[in-house]
Amino acid sequence: MSLVINHNMMAANAARNLSTSYSDLGTSVRRLSSGLRVGTAADDAAGLAIRELMRSDIAALNQGVRNANDAISMIQTADGALGVIDEKLIRMKELAEQAATGTYSSDQRLIIDSEYQAMASEITRIANATDFNGVYLLNGNLSSDTHSGSGLQATGKMKIHFGTANDSSEDYYYIKINSATASSLGVGNQSASGDGFSISTQEGAQKALSALEDAIVSKDKIRANLGALQNRLQNTITNLEIQSENLQAAESRISDVDVSQEMTSFVRNQILTQSAVAMLSQANSLPRMALTLVGG
């Protein structure tokens, strides 16, 4: 190599190597400080695209777990109210049994019937008042077989969404709750007709016993359905948590930095950078050798 002044190729070469090493050192510092192997699209374009899709699914699955837990809370609210209605129906059957015997006068049966009707009114009040986050659960609003979510207020059976897409076989199912008002159960004078209408007469009381039996069975069917749905939701939550965990592990393998491997690269790049700085300093001093010849 010729000894020249205008073009210091050794310095240019050292500067280029310094730039490369320093850039790699900066990348290692960024990865180690952030914990991410893929911090920008330039690090791994395909990996970044896959990671972001996984992250969106993980976020959706975690929200799906919360959705399912909210649905369980709603079911427990409805079941608790039905438990109180159960007590009222049992008391009504007890009153019907009392009025069915012949040892009571008509006036006494009217008194018994007044409590019977009060219990029926309380059943209807509980059914109409039980709500979860503004959604009434036992008044028949959720008893329809069809669902429509096109309006601001959804109608029909309730759609519980927990999956990452909108596939009915994977991402959601419906909760249907039949009405639990006294008229729906066929007891009390709020019902238009039926054997459970009144216990003011001995015959009416005897008929009411059968009607109350049917009402208790109807109520138990609602509770059994809610219990089955709660168990199903709990299993759904378990499955969602496993999916989220496995996706998180896959996302970590793509995105997270291997600290031991990156630390090795960091030390290597650090040494190369320090060496390049030292050699650039030496290369910059080489043209001075030409001055000694000129001076000589």
Rank of each mutant, 00 (worst) to 15 (best):
R31C: 07
R31T: 08
R31L: 03
L32E: 06
L32Y: 07
L32G: 08
S33R: 03
S34R: 05
G35E: 01
L36A: 11
R37L: 14
R37C: 07
V38W: 00
V38F: 00
V38Y: 01
G39I: 09
G39S: 10
T40E: 09
T40K: 14
A41F: 06
A42E: 12
D43G: 03
A45L: 11
A45Q: 11
A45W: 07
A46P: 05
A46M: 05
A46I: 09
A46H: 07
G47M: 07
G47R: 07
A49Q: 13
A49S: 12
A49R: 11
I50V: 15
R51H: 11
E52L: 12
E52G: 00
L53P: 00
R55Y: 14
R55V: 14
D57F: 05
A59H: 01
A59F: 07
A60Q: 14
A60L: 11
L61Q: 05
L61E: 05
N62I: 00
Q63I: 10
Q63K: 08
Q63Y: 00
V65Y: 09
R66Y: 13
R66T: 15
N67R: 04
N67L: 03
A68T: 15
A68S: 15
N69W: 07
N69D: 15
D70Q: 08
A71E: 05
A71V: 04
I75F: 12
T77R: 02
T77F: 07
A78S: 13
D79T: 10
G80P: 02
G80N: 07
G80I: 05
A81F: 02
A81T: 05
A81Q: 04
L82A: 10
L82C: 08
V84K: 14
V84F: 14
D86Q: 13
E87V: 01
E87T: 09
L89H: 11
I90T: 12
I90L: 04
R91H: 05
M92I: 02
M92S: 02
M92E: 01
M92Y: 02
E94T: 11
E94W: 00
E97Y: 02
E97C: 00
A99I: 01
A99W: 00
A100V: 01
A100L: 01
A100Y: 03
T101P: 02
T103K: 03
Y104F: 09
Y104E: 07
Y104A: 13
Y104D: 06
